[in-house]
Design a protein around this nucleic acid. Structure first.
Lengths: 140, 140
DNA sequence: TCTTGCACCTCTAGTCGCTAGAGGATGTAG
DNA sequence: CTACATCCTCTAGCGACTAGAGGTGCAAGA
């Protein structure tokens, strides 16, 4: 029966105070009960839910995906096929993003290495940006 | 003296029409001259500039960084130290992002592989999200 | 010449996931 | 009783666009 304030909930879950209120406002977290003075009073279950959301956000899941995952969690008799599909889709996204960033890294390294540190008109950084044909990787 | 319409400029530079107007509105691209009927009329130099911006955006440079790079390009007597610093900073960011995404990838793979495709109450995907302590990597 | 239809114009508002700030109420320690 | 931190609601802002409304320009076919 000890009341958990929003600050305490934020500290324990690792979600910032305004973000907790934001999650409540978009219906990701049920509105908690209030104290006499209208201050939010959270339950331990709310802390778990916030930690779940935070971890999912750190993994890059979008809010709508998290909403679905939370619905699944609330109803544990369901098949986990949806959760699996969401995680798989996210994995594909992450792999794609890594591939793309590796290409960018290569291009940036080339730019930086070949910069003679002279004047701009001899600078490869500027030059490569100005003429995509000069760079080794092609997008799409 | 052939006039380049905004559609043509978009097609040639690979930047979308509304985005061209947006770049003009934030001063990244000088306002072009207009036809009698008030339609934008671009020069070939504008196409190059748009292509430069597009390429830099693909490399993940922020608009303000691109603004600096464009200023450097416009003034080729300057030292390219600034351009070099911007590219180097971006390289560090990209490397950091790749490291972080690799960790996420590992965690997602573990989640997906250990999903037994049964009911949600046996689902690792949900479980791992609910309890960060179970996962192999730690953030921060 | 007329008309069809696409491309263009401006302007406002929406996207996502927060974050910052104003202006005020509450709760607690000394 | 007085500080002072923490809480409340509300609105607006961030970056980098994107979408839509409501209207105008322009080139080509009938």
């Amino acid at each position: 029966m000890k009341k958990i304030t929003i600050g305490e909930a934020a500290r324990r879950s690792g979600v910032k105070v305004p973000t907790v209120r934001y999650y409540e406002s978009i219906g990701l977290l049920a509105a908690p009960s209030r104290s006499e003075g209208n201050q939010r009073s959270f339950e331990p279950a709310d802390i778990s839910r916030l930690a779940f959301i935070r971890h999912a956000r750190e993994l890059g899941f979008e809010i709508e995906a998290i909403r679905t995952l939370l619905t699944l969690q609330d109803d544990p008799n369901q098949s986990c096929a949806s959760a699996d599909a969401i995680a798989k889709a996210r994995l594909v996204e992450v792999e794609q993003r890594i591939r793309s960033l590796m290409a960018l890294k290569a291009e940036l390294e080339m730019m930086v290495e070949s910069c003679g540190h002279g004047r701009v008109d001899q600078c490869r950084v500027i030059e490569v940006l100005a003429d995509h044909g000069q760079c080794t990787h092609s997008h799409h």
